[in-house]
Write a protein that binds this DNA or RNA. Sequence first.
DNA 1: TCGTTGACATTTC
DNA 2: CGAAATGCCAACG
Length: 115
Amino acid sequence: MSTVDKSGFFEKVYKVAAQIPEGRVTSYGAIAKYLGAAKSARMVGWAMNASKNREDVPAHRVVNRNGMLTGKSHFGGSNAMQQLLEAEGVKIREMKVLDFDSVFWDPMTQLEEPY
DNA sequence: TCGTTGACATTTC
DNA sequence: CGAAATGCCAACG
C-alpha cells in the first residue's frame, strides 16, 4: 500500500474516519478499539490532531463517548463542526449529538473485515 | 531518559 | 451533571 506515514497508527485512524458514512458519527474509543488500541483512545484524538492537515479525514464526524463535540474546540473554535454534522442529518444540541445511539457508527460492527 | 500534555474512557464521589 | 482521580499510550521539549 502507499506509504504515507510509516507510523501506521495515524493511517489506520484516517482510513476508518474516511469510511464513516455521512450522517453518522463514531467515537474515538470505537476507532481505537477497532485498531486494537482501545486503551489508547487518546491516541486517536492525537492522530486526529494531525488529521487536520488531511482533508480526507472528516474529523467533525468523530466525537467522544458521550457524543459530545469535544473536537470543536480544536476545529477552529467555531460551530462549523456542528453545522457540518447537522448538514449531514445529525442533530446537534449544545454541542452534543442527539440520538447518538442511532447515528453512532461502529467500525467493528459496520466493517466486517479488519484492515 | 524524563516530565508534561492531551480531540478519551471509566469509576467514584 | 460536574469534578476529581486513574489508566493508557504516543508525541514533544
